[in-house]
């Protein structure tokens, strides 16, 4: 056998096991989902082609827009917040103080807990009457059943749970900044604020951009925290797009409409990430 043929064959053999799963459970479902969005499908029955009917139905559905705007609200608030808190924590941990290794572990620890554990724990904190906050403050607040308080509770829970991940990414970036840069600046008499704004932040720009993007994508996918803590309530005001996709697809069993929403959701996330990277590179120039 010719050497190049053999080499090509070997490469594809190495890749084959992974590619089988990649194609079957990632690539194919994307196309299938797009196809489904043009059909009326419910479980166990073959679908009927309905053209753009599903798109019309979704785009004229006020509940779709409400859940989309709920999701966007969460993205807009939580993304800068969790990025900034993660960066600040990384700055703490990166300062050469004693005990920072332990502090780093503590900040990161909630990240390894599972969604169900985290939400269960914070429900007990936010619950009225017997909840920890109610008992500690003596003030009866219906955190999980009042619109804005529910959002605050969800944002606090999410920050506590996931910020450690962003901290680690920021920390890796901070440690890549050569110490000599700071020393040179200090010799020139730069103040602490100048160091932060003239050196740290500019040099951290690529890392912070990446953390911001990853966090935004993560925030778009919000589902478990709201589903388990508020069920989407009060009055669907914390229902996210992923929850709506789930309810239409799996509870109402309307998989065509649900696929249409999934596809639109995918487009929004894609547009958002591209728009963001364009915007960020634009401000740099």
């Amino acid at each position: 056998m010719k050497e190049s043929v053999k080499r090509n064959l070997t490469a594809w053999l190495f890749l084959a096991p992974y590619l089988v799963f990649f194609i079957a459970f990632l690539a194919f479902p994307i196309f299938r989902g797009f196809g489904l969005s043009f059909f009326r499908v419910s479980l166990g029955r073959p679908g009927t082609f309905v053209g753009f009917d599903n798109y019309v139905r979704v785009l004229t559905d006020t509940q779709f827009w409400l859940s989309l705007s709920n999701t966007l609200l969460f993205v807009v608030v939580s993304t800068p917040l969790i990025t900034a808190v993660g960066f600040t924590m990384a700055m703490f941990v990166n300062s050469k103080l004693k005990g920072t290794a332990i502090i780093r572990s503590v900040y990161f620890a909630p990240y390894v807990l599972s969604m169900a554990v985290v939400t269960g724990l914070w429900i007990f904190i936010f619950q009225p009457y017997l909840g920890l906050l109610s008992v500690l403050t003596g003030v009866e607040m219906f955190w999980l059943s009042t619109r804005w308080l529910a959002w605050i509770a969800i944002i606090i829970t999410t920050t506590w749970w996931t910020v450690g991940f962003n901290m680690i990414l920021c920390l890796a970036g901070l440690q890549d900044i050569p110490e000599e840069v700071y020393e040179a600046a200090r010799i020139d008499g730069a103040s602490r604020t100048q160091l932060l704004f003239q050196i740290t932040l500019p040099m951290m720009r690529p890392v912070l951009t990446m953390v911001f993007m990853l966090q935004a994508i993560q925030s778009f996918k919000l589902f478990g925290q709201t589903w388990l803590m508020t069920g989407g309530g009060p009055g669907n005001h914390t229902r996210t797009i992923v929850q709506y996709i789930y309810q239409i697809g799996f509870i109402e069993r309307n998989m065509g409409v649900s696929s249409t929403m999934s596809f639109l959701f995918f487009l929004v996330v894609l547009l958002f990430t591209f728009g963001q990277s364009k915007l960020l590179s634009f401000t740099r120039n």
Binding site: G33, I245, S262, F266
Partner: peptide
């Protein structure tokens, strides 16, 4: 780039 949330139905 593909959120699994967007492909759960076909999956």
């Amino acid at each position: 780039m593909v959120p699994i949330e967007a492909i759960v139905i076909p999956l």
